[in-house]
Design a protein around this nucleic acid. Sequence first.
RNA 1: GGAGAGCUGGCUGAGUGGUCGAAAGCGCUCCCCUGCUAAGGGAGUAUGGGUUAAUAGCCCAUCGAGGGUUCGAAUCCCUCGCUCUCCGCCA
Length: 426
Amino acid sequence: MIDPKILRQSASEVARMLERRGFEFDADGYNKLESKRKSLQIKNEELKNQRNISSKNIGIAKSKNEDILSLMQIVEEVNKNIKVNEKQLNETLAKINSIELDLPNLLSEEVPDGVDEQDNLIVSTYGTPKKFDFKPLDHIEIGNRLDSLDFESAGRISGSRFAVMKGSLASLQRALIQFMLNTHIQEHEYEEVYAPLLVQANALIGTSQLPKFESDLFKIEGDKPLYLIPTAEVPLTNLVAGKVIDERALPLKYVAHTPCFRSEAGSYGKDTKGLIRQHQFEKVELVQIVKPEESKDALMSLTSHAEKILRELKLPYQVVSLCAGDIGFGAKITYDLEVWLPGQDAYREISSCSLFGDFQARRMQAKWKNSKTGKNEFLHTINGSGLAAGRALVAIIENYQDESGNVIVPDVLIPYMNGLKIIKSS
RNA sequence: GGAGAGCUGGCUGAGUGGUCGAAAGCGCUCCCCUGCUAAGGGAGUAUGGGUUAAUAGCCCAUCGAGGGUUCGAAUCCCUCGCUCUCCGCCA
């Protein structure tokens, strides 16, 4: 959520800044609602003040055995007015709140202009795509030859966009996850977290998947509906929801491996084949909760932690700064890591690292006590994949394939594969 | 799933309809006193919102959450959540 104070003071300026995203914000409409809110609220508080005074006087009069009838009549009248006024106030507040919840975050200045992924800015590249002296296969074909990737069974069991992995590829994914977790825990000092995969709407409002993007989520119906998490960002970030964190405990750094569930309703026709876009996938997620002045550095360090995994795996990648039109709803700035996939002859997103400023913290009411000001202030949140395991598996299969359709196990994963160095096709 | 107890400020804990945002203690901050890291004295010490130049006043709201009764609710009623104890069931 954007700071309501900023919205009140300069709605049209906010509208101009959101235009960069291609988002249209009706500043005039907002201002009208806002001035309505103001007058209603002032009136409401005046009326309540009257009632409080009169009620107090009734108590005093009663204790002195004085007549209270006339006072009672006054209050009765005031109460009628409160009822009418409060209804209007609440309606206005609800409208304002729903507008504010649907407003995307303000962008950092360094976010490049642009309307879609075409305009994203390549910040840096690491490694160079390997030249194969044979035509590299895509992971679907290799998986098929290894008899380890089975989309057909998954289709029969669950429908499209699900996968069954067997044998060595299933192990390889598990090895990847273990390797990533250990690296982040031991080298990057994140705390490992095991968290719920089913969450309430409130948590999703906190991290800003709701109310706007409900169609991307899988919902479990019930008297209290639950949602399958689309990313561990949701439970990890919500760890601080409603809390005031002691300054000395900051920064908080959490890592978790979870399955992620996305209905991806809006992306029919995109990546319909293979492991790239699934309803269910494994991901290792990094979250940092920090003081505002440290948040930019935290984004850089978190991004470097995700990069470390790609480097250790010796996978070529590029770092991309998402342009204004492509950046996510709640993010101020986002760096995507795109890994080279020989099977697609293209770089594809494998991690997305974002700084949210106080956007999520404000929704979650997550604060810290600033010892300098003595005030409780909103935290800043950062998250990123470190990495998406399913896509990392694809990258390894495709980058580490040999002419015979075998997959070489990257050095750093061999210990996690019980010493296995090569996954051989039969 | 069943039965019972509870949920008050940073903490402990009082408060069962009226000037209670809330006693007292602890902790913390500042000041005074004291020649020695002790003891004592005083003042202050929740959060959000509105108004405002103001982190000055004033006002509104908040005693797990949400409703209700009442002129008036921390106190009474209802619903929900959570914690603890006992029983059942279960990985």
